[in-house]
Computed example of a mutant assay.
Amino acid sequence: MHCASLVVLLTVIGIAIAQNPYTTKYDNVDVDKILKNDRVLTNYIKCLMDEGPCTPEGRELKKTLPDALESNCSKCNEKQKNTTEKVIRHLMNKRTKDWDRLTKKYDPQGAYKHRYQQETNSA
């Protein structure tokens, strides 16, 4: 009986950990300012592509991006979801080469790219 209780407890802890939302520490970063500044945006892209150094924000993004793509941003708060859509729309429309490079790295089968393209086109 003790072993069964331990298994249940570990399962509950595992589910709680898996559902933890992403940090809100960087929610107040001015994304519009970044998107308007080609040099800064390029530096973030280089960070994500392992071609340059990362800021703390870039490291956090790089760490959470694969999970956020896979889970359809299920751990994102509303602000993070809106910011994600804004950035994706910007990259798709204004930085298509960078969008293609990022999707090749983070979505080589194209599963998430297709889903996000549909979502941003319908928005």
Rank of each mutant, 00 (worst) to 15 (best):
M1T: 11
H2E: 15
C3Y: 13
C3G: 06
C3H: 14
C3F: 14
A4Y: 08
S5L: 15
S5C: 14
V7D: 06
L10A: 05
L10I: 08
T11D: 00
T11M: 10
V12S: 06
V12R: 02
V12A: 12
V12N: 04
G14Y: 06
I15F: 15
A16W: 13
A16P: 06
A16V: 14
I17K: 12
I17F: 13
A18G: 07
A18R: 05
Q19G: 04
N20Q: 14
P21A: 05
P21Y: 02
T23G: 15
T24H: 12
K25F: 15
K25G: 11
Y26T: 11
Y26L: 13
D27R: 02
D27I: 03
N28F: 10
N28A: 12
N28L: 08
V29M: 07
D30F: 04
V31K: 01
D32I: 01
K33I: 00
K33F: 01
I34D: 02
I34Q: 00
L35I: 01
K36Y: 01
D38L: 01
L41Q: 00
T42A: 06
Y44E: 04
Y44M: 05
I45L: 01
I45P: 00
I45N: 01
K46F: 05
K46T: 03
K46L: 04
M49N: 10
D50S: 07
D50C: 00
E51A: 05
E51P: 03
G52S: 02
P53W: 11
P53L: 10
C54R: 05
C54W: 04
T55Q: 07
P56D: 13
P56F: 08
E57N: 15
G58W: 08
G58P: 11
E60Q: 12
L61A: 13
L61D: 09
L61G: 13
K63D: 15
L65K: 05
L65W: 09
P66V: 03
P66W: 04
D67I: 00
L69Q: 07
E70H: 12
E70I: 02
S71I: 03
S74P: 09
N77F: 09
N77I: 07
E78G: 08
E78M: 10
K79Q: 15
K79S: 14
Q80P: 08
K81H: 14
N82E: 15
T84E: 14
T84Q: 12
E85Q: 12
I88T: 02
I88E: 01
I88V: 09
R89I: 05
R89L: 04
R89S: 10
H90M: 01
L91A: 00
L91Q: 00
M92N: 03
R95A: 00
T96H: 08
T96W: 03
K97F: 05
D98Q: 06
D100S: 10
D100C: 07
D100V: 05
R101S: 15
R101N: 14
L102M: 12
T103R: 09
K104S: 14
K104P: 03
K105V: 08
K105A: 04
Y106H: 04
D107R: 04
P108G: 13
P108D: 14
G110H: 07
G110C: 06
G110N: 07
Y112A: 11
K113H: 02
H114S: 13
Y116C: 10
Q117M: 11
Q118W: 07
S122R: 13
S122Y: 05
A123W: 09
A123N: 13
A123E: 12
